[in-house]
Amino acid sequence: MELNVVWFLLLAVLFGGYAVLDGFDLGVGMIHLGLKSDIERRTSINAIGPVWDANEVWLITAGGALFAAFPDVYATLFSGFYTPFMLFLLAIIGRAISIEFRSKVESAGWKKTWDVVFCLSSFLIVSILGISLGNIITGIPIYQDKEYAGTLYTLFRPYAIMTGITSLLLIRMHGKIFLAMKTEGELQQKIAKGINASLVLFVISYIIHGAWTIIMYPGVTKNFVIFPVWFILPAFIILSIIVIPGFINSRLYYRAFIASCAIIVFCIAIIAINIYPNLVISNPNPENSLTIFNSASSTKTLMIMFIVACIGIPIMLVYKILIYRIFRGKVKIDNMSY
């Protein structure tokens, strides 16, 4: 298999991993203001406390890998999506700071402020990423010299907004399931009660979004038509969706969480298959698209980075899994907590 293809897969894994892992951190953030007492809010922040930072690193790694493997895409995307991206950075900063600063001062006003920042920044992050994803699916105008040819408003077209909404609903559900898994007693019941409703909202949105894609942008799904075996992915998504209510009602939250992770992973996979071999589709003028072949680094760099990834990623997985195991179980607040 060519290195360019390998890197396409690796990038999909990195972005997919980010979506699943930081997804639950962001989901927890999104429901934060729905929790009312200080102890509930502390519990939810401490549920993600030990792991959110390392989860965010998946995005940094995806960005760095994009820079190393496909520098033209890195340049076009980040300079082209400049303003939304700056807002995204603002939200990333806000989320990190709110988690760290929230419990440092014993004032209700201080805590409330950071609670709002935590919630809003989580919303903003998911919205921007979701809208960007919508633009990746349909393509954006690109010049011959690979620079972005549109304006800020091009990025906010209705389909992209729909993708953003679908992402928000999925991530919100994902966060709820995670939190149900990590909490106990009254708080757990409160959160668990809302999960099935969140699932329904997501499913409705997902169906609308899917129909919109197929009807308005039929070219998007051509890879599925050529290789029908990929239809197994939406099948898995449907399966994962179906099992969740059963798990929730039987209080098997860990299994529900796995199913939720699966939905996210398969959604990312479908998008990856849809756009292959492009990374940034040019719409109009598809001949200007940035592909994994015309926007890549030299073979030498791809090979070097491939070796780095082969060494680094397995090592990382070992200690990350180890650390998740250490922090399994319910959240307990002690004197070293946030």
Partner: peptide, 19 residues
Amino acid sequence: GSPLAIEAIFAFFLESAFL
């Protein structure tokens, strides 16, 4: 791009996980 990506894979993951 390579040293930046390597920084993320080897250093950022290590420090943030054990943090």
